[in-house]
Nucleic acid binder design. Structure first.
Lengths: 152, 152
DNA sequence: CCTGAAAATCGTGAGAT
DNA sequence: ATCTCACGATTTTCAGG
């Protein structure tokens, strides 16, 4: 899908605040509300906008702890790799899963209510899972920025 | 703010899809639309819902590369620390900033269009910045999960 | 592609329980 | 606290340029 300057401007606005009305957006970008409506629908249809979500403050729902985990695999055979990845992705406490190359294989970003919960999860995700050579835990002291905003 | 089971259910739904209408939400949780409206407004007011955003697919807007960076500081004196942190947070290509303790001090998650852009940013953020002892770059081969969903 | 208006849907507040 | 109802605003569709 081709995105022109109007589309990019809409994306820039919407990825910061998707509750702006189409009327407000139309004034910001100098289009009619119906043009804005059609463009947004097209971007949703094309998958440019993958979803629209409410962001919840984890501290205010009793899940104050963010943890970063570097995971090293034992064996990178594809079926084993996929099994581990699925286990990570399917875990509700795991917010983000990155596969990288280098000193470790996966980087996980997790959210838990306390360290006890984290310890239980390490058992499920790492110890009982097989194929994990090791993992390194970093507790986030601060989460100074947390967005998926694309610089466009 | 106290959150009851209705609120938590609303959050669970909204952090996956905030475009659900209040009518749809009211049917899912068995409340009237106006009760849903009031609860959502209260959660927004209390900061439980910090924002509502559109999530953009970075690959479809020509920014396909996600990079993880571990940053080690030279000096952790508070004013120097804050200066570095501000530099990270203010950079549009930096999506997430975590301060941790351990082998390194900051973990950054960045989004760029190519490695050239990343190299330029390393210069701005790390070399020219002073107070950076070193950094380690990991290019994400896969981003298998990318949410901020809180498990509630 | 756009605009502008009509139609349908939605969000919101008032009043009652 | 909740619900129902009604009003105003918004979204969405459609005709015409």
């Amino acid at each position: 899908m081709h995105l022109d300057a109007y589309d990019l401007k809409l994306l820039r606005l919407l990825q910061v605040d998707s509750k702006l009305t189409q009327r407000q957006l139309s004034e910001s970008v100098n289009l009619s509300p119906s043009a804005v409506n059609r463009r947004i629908a097209a971007m949703e249809g094309a998958g440019v906008i993958t979803s629209t979500v409410a962001v919840v403050d984890p501290a205010l729902v009793n899940r104050p702890i963010t943890i970063l985990v570097e995971v090293k695999l034992e064996n990178e055979r594809l079926d084993l790799f996929d099994a581990v990845k699925k286990r990570f992705v399917d875990c509700p406490q795991v917010q983000q899963v990155y596969y990288v190359t280098g000193d470790f294989d996966f980087m996980l970003i997790m959210n838990v209510k306390d360290m006890t919960e984290y310890e239980q999860l390490t058992r499920e995700l790492f110890f009982d899972s097989g194929n994990i050579k090791g993992f390194k835990t970093y507790v986030a002291m601060q989460r100074s920025k947390a967005t998926f905003n694309v610089p466009i």
